Simulated scan of single mutants.
Amino acid sequence: MPVYTVHAPSPHGTDLRAAEKFAFVRDGFHFWAMIYGPIWLLWHRLWLALIGWVIFFAALQAGLSSLGVGPTSIFFVDIILALLMGLEAASLRRWTLSRGKWRQLDVVVADDRETAERRFFERWGQKQRGIVNDQWAVDRGGPPPTRNVPGEAFSNPPPLPSGGIIGLFPEPGGSR
């Protein structure tokens, strides 16, 4: 199953209004990044990665040509670079998002992006409700056991044990 990382713009990371801006980045091999590397980088607006790729590719081509490497070897080097681009495309996208002050919110495992979004927002919505609706602070309807309410068995505090000792430790000088 594919793994998706969920990224949010940093100032609006937990805001419901920013939910439409969340980015889901699939981890793994990207076929179209391998076939059309520069176009894939343009499509995803990875400008620094595109500039770096163009400079590296041009320098490598010029270096291999100046060393007298044959066209077959240069072709195999190009194939290896294309495979590397397909393998590292998601990492380049995550790197660009982190440079843009985006933060990673979660990691989701799902079959496709739609399922990943549904799973993330279900889990994220429960966390948001947990922050707003604190169940521990809700009045359960009964008085706490320290109140003295006549007629209720649990309203009086429990009696102190004989000897005044609370806990499992014996009195000093007592029998074991």
Score class of each variant (00 low, 15 high):
Ala18Asp: 05
Leu16Gln: 13
Glu122Gln: 14
Glu114Arg: 13
Ala23Glu: 15
Ala33Trp: 00
Gly68Ile: 05
Ile55Ser: 14
Val54Phe: 15
Asn133Ser: 08
Gly163Phe: 07
Asp106Cys: 00
Gly28Thr: 06
Gly52Gln: 07
His12Val: 02
Leu46Gly: 00
Gly70Lys: 09
Thr14Lys: 12
Gly167Thr: 06
Glu171Thr: 08
Arg119Asn: 06
Arg176Cys: 06
Ile55Glu: 07
Trp40Thr: 04
Ser73Ile: 13
Gly63Trp: 07
Ala18Arg: 03
Pro150Cys: 05
Val3Thr: 11
Gly28Asn: 06
Leu41Ala: 14
Leu16Phe: 09
Arg123Ile: 02
Ser73Asp: 11
Arg17Thr: 07
Ser98Gln: 14
Leu64Met: 13
Arg103Ala: 06
Val6Glu: 01
Ala18Trp: 01
Phe29Gln: 06
Arg93Asp: 05
Leu160Ser: 15
Gly151Arg: 09
Lys21Asn: 06
Ser65His: 08
Phe31Thr: 08
Phe75Asp: 14
Arg113Asp: 08
Val138Glu: 10
Ala153Lys: 12
Asn156Pro: 02
His44Val: 00
Trp102Cys: 01
Asp15His: 11
Pro159Cys: 10
Gly68Leu: 05
Arg118Asp: 10
Glu20Trp: 02
Gln135Ile: 10
Val69Gly: 00
Phe57Gly: 08
Trp136Ile: 05
Gly28Trp: 04
Arg26His: 04
Pro144His: 15
Tyr4Phe: 15
Pro172Ala: 12
Pro71Glu: 13
His44Glu: 05
Asp78Gln: 14
Phe31Pro: 00
Val6Cys: 03
Leu92Cys: 09
Arg129Leu: 13
Gly141Pro: 00
Phe22Asp: 04
Phe154Glu: 11
His30Asp: 10
Pro9Cys: 10
Thr115Met: 15
Leu97Cys: 03
Phe57Ile: 09
Arg147Met: 15
Val69Arg: 02
Pro145Met: 09
Val69Trp: 02
Pro161Ser: 11
Thr14Asp: 14
Asp78Ala: 12
Phe169Val: 10
Arg147His: 11
Gly52Pro: 04
Pro157Thr: 12
Ala90Tyr: 05
Phe24Asp: 01
